[in-house]
Amino acid sequence: MADIPKNTSQGPRGPKPKRAFSRGNIFLYGTLIVVSMYYLLPLYVMIVTSLKGMPEIRMGNVFGPPMEITFEPWVKAWSEACTGINCDGLSRGFGNSVRILIPSVLLSIMIASVNGYALSNWKFKGSESFFTILIIGAFIPYQTMLYPIVIMLREIGLMGSIGGLVLVHTVFGMPILTLLFRNYFASIPEELFKAARVDGAGFWQIYFQIMVPMALPIFVVAIILQVTGIWNDFLFGVIYTKPATYPMTVQLNNIVNSVQGVKEYNVNMAATLLTGLVPLVIYFASGKLFVRGIAAGAVKG
């Protein structure tokens, strides 16, 4: 009904003025802004706390901006914070996490992409059943498989080492990545595959020369998915590594939740931010691809 006078009057205020500040819109933006504050609050608090000195934290307001900006907590978190007897800061955990991350991401994506390719183009008797088991496995709570894996790793002599954790990440990343690649390869026209077969190309030739170049975007999605997932892992890190090889998340938890000494909240927050930095950078740099990755993760059923 409101549309009729608008069309006939053509007032001086220009086109479509009525939508800009309607009551509904104010309510809508108001809600979104208030909710945004809840989401941004922890990040803001972490940043300002990590830039304050301890005296200012003790007297002050957790939401207030720092009066005197200091980067000392960051330096301390990186190179001096203590876990137990070791006082070499988070840098050790960071190094471990990188050494875990790179081989895990490469290995898991290599295996999963070959799986996806074989499952969509080279089906054999039983291949679908193995795939179904794999997908069901993604829903089994990790707790049910933790101890058998301890035994397996002990048997092959990798318990407590970075290599062992790499294997664990490869195994548990496999269901979702295989699904991702299988769905992608299944969407590539089969004629392409058949033509290559007629030309005499074999399993690996088709994989490397046709499939991999075509699947580059999905490789990027898989990398994003794995890097954030493996970097953020805590459970496997705490169980399958020992203090010298703890990944960053485990070391962070030990630093912040250690009961000894005076709590230095600014150092703790700097350490927390340092740990969160890698996935945050990936998130903001990758934008839509990150969403695509989690959307792929979401449909894993």
Binding site: P42, V45, T49, W231, N232, T272, L280, F284, F290
Partner: peptide
């Protein structure tokens, strides 16, 4: 969406402080 990129450890420690 950005909190989803962060680990539970980071989440837990941030809220522990707040």
């Amino acid at each position: 969406l950005y909190p989803f990129a962060l680990s539970f450890v980071v989440t837990g420690l941030a809220w522990q402080w707040i």
